[in-house]
Amino acid sequence: MFAIPLAWLQLIRERIRLIIAVAGIAFAVLLMMMQFGFRDALFEASVRFHETLNADIVLISPESTALIAMKQFPRRRLFQAGGFDGVEAISPLYLDFGLWQNPLDKTTRQLMVIGIDPYANAFTLPGADTWVNTLKLPDYVLFDGDSRLEFGPIPDLFASGEIVTTEVSGRRITVGGIFNMGASFGADGNLITSDLNFLRMFPRRSPGLVDVGLIRVKPGVDAEQLAARMQEVLDNDVLVFTHAQFAEFERTYWENSTAIGFIFTLGALMGFIVGTVIVYQVLYTDVSDHLPEYATLKAMGYKDTYFYGVVMQESLILSCLGYIPGFLVAYAFYGVIQGATSLPVGMTFERALMVFTLTVFMCTLSGAIAMRRVQSADPADIF
């Protein structure tokens, strides 16, 4: 009736074996945590830019596949969209990648440059409504304070009152403010500047071709219905999305059109398989070592179901003992990785619960396989 003490006593009888088993399960938990964490960080970081846009409807070129591979469309399409009933405001947005020169060590690194109308209030980021006085100045930019450290300690320099000047793609610029958006797998850093400053940095870009068109609708207007109506009327050289659809468009690209999501999921699967093999070996060895005792208990009248319960309880105990250190190490690693890469790698309740469920399933699956060994405990071998 009280089988849990027996399962526990069998596990702690061989302490070295128990430690090795717990370490193996913890490693499998850590591997699954890291792979799922990287995958989720990829998807979350990929839509950081999209989520901060102050727009209800977005226009892009049908040739665009993701934020890192945007194609331009005629700006007149945006003006045409502005003529629809229910539209409150429109704003063009320009995107390109420039070479940022670290003002301290003079190394260069690519970042994403975003050109906006200073008066359009194109983002919902904190302080966005105060950017106009800075962005309207020639060759002034706003620097993303959550960019990777390789760009230099720009937020610290700016906070100290120092005038930060450097070059972007060979053009001299001045940092006039700091915002916080964050790096992604496609861009290690971000700059926001006015559309005029953007065109000065990239003189080959035509002002009549934009990367993204932002549209805000009037209160009470159904953005989804208006977007569908725009798509029917406008030429086929633009795609019309709602804000949520634009973010999903980006997420779908990284999830289905690249191998990154598949690789991280495969890595988590490998961790699951490794853990399953380790637990199976431990339980199989434990059952083999206690076959004479099991045979004696069978001769006393105990059924196979009793021994199955003991093995399954050993599996559950191992899953809990291995999960705790794996969770703690993964939690610490998340903090280190987030600080080093500026990616949103953090522990979530959903991921912790999912990995715990996988760990329990991994151990019970191993126990179910190892239980076949219990059937070979024959009392006739003892007497």
Rank of each mutant, 00 (worst) to 15 (best):
T134H: 02
K106N: 09
P138L: 06
F79P: 00
G127C: 00
W100Q: 05
L78K: 06
V132A: 15
M70D: 08
I114H: 05
R109N: 15
L137N: 12
I60S: 12
I90T: 15
D139R: 15
I90Q: 09
R76H: 15
Y119V: 00
L78H: 07
G98K: 10
L78M: 05
L111M: 15
A122W: 09
I90G: 07
E88W: 07
I68Y: 06
F97W: 11
F123I: 00
T107G: 04
S91F: 11
N102Q: 09
F79Y: 12
F84V: 05
Q72W: 06
R109D: 13
V132K: 11
G98Q: 08
I60V: 14
S91G: 10
I114L: 10
P118R: 08
T130E: 11
G86M: 03
P118L: 09
A89E: 14
G86H: 08
L99I: 03
T130Y: 08
L111Q: 06
P62I: 03
G83H: 12
G82K: 07
L99Q: 14
Y119A: 14
D105Y: 03
F84L: 04
T130C: 00
V132P: 01
P92Y: 05
N121S: 09
L137M: 15
G86P: 09
L125C: 07
P118A: 07
Y119Q: 12
K106H: 11
I90V: 15
W131K: 01
A120M: 09
Q80I: 02
D105V: 02
R75D: 01
S64Y: 02
L99E: 14
L67V: 09
I114W: 01
D96M: 09
N121T: 02
T108H: 12
P92T: 04
L93S: 09
P126Y: 02
R77T: 00
G82D: 07
L111V: 09
D129Y: 03
M70S: 10
G82Q: 00
T134D: 04
G115Y: 06
F84E: 06
P126W: 02
Q72A: 14
F123L: 11
S61L: 10
A69M: 07
D129V: 04
E88P: 02
A120G: 10
N133K: 13
G83P: 00
D85Y: 11
P126R: 10
S61Q: 08
Q72E: 15
V113R: 06
L104M: 11
T124P: 00
M70G: 02
I60E: 06
P92F: 06
L135F: 01
G127A: 00
Y119C: 07
S64D: 06
I68A: 12
R75W: 04
N121Q: 12
F84W: 07
T108D: 04
L125K: 07
T107L: 05
F123Q: 02
T107S: 15
E63V: 04
T107V: 05
R109L: 13
L93M: 14
F84S: 02
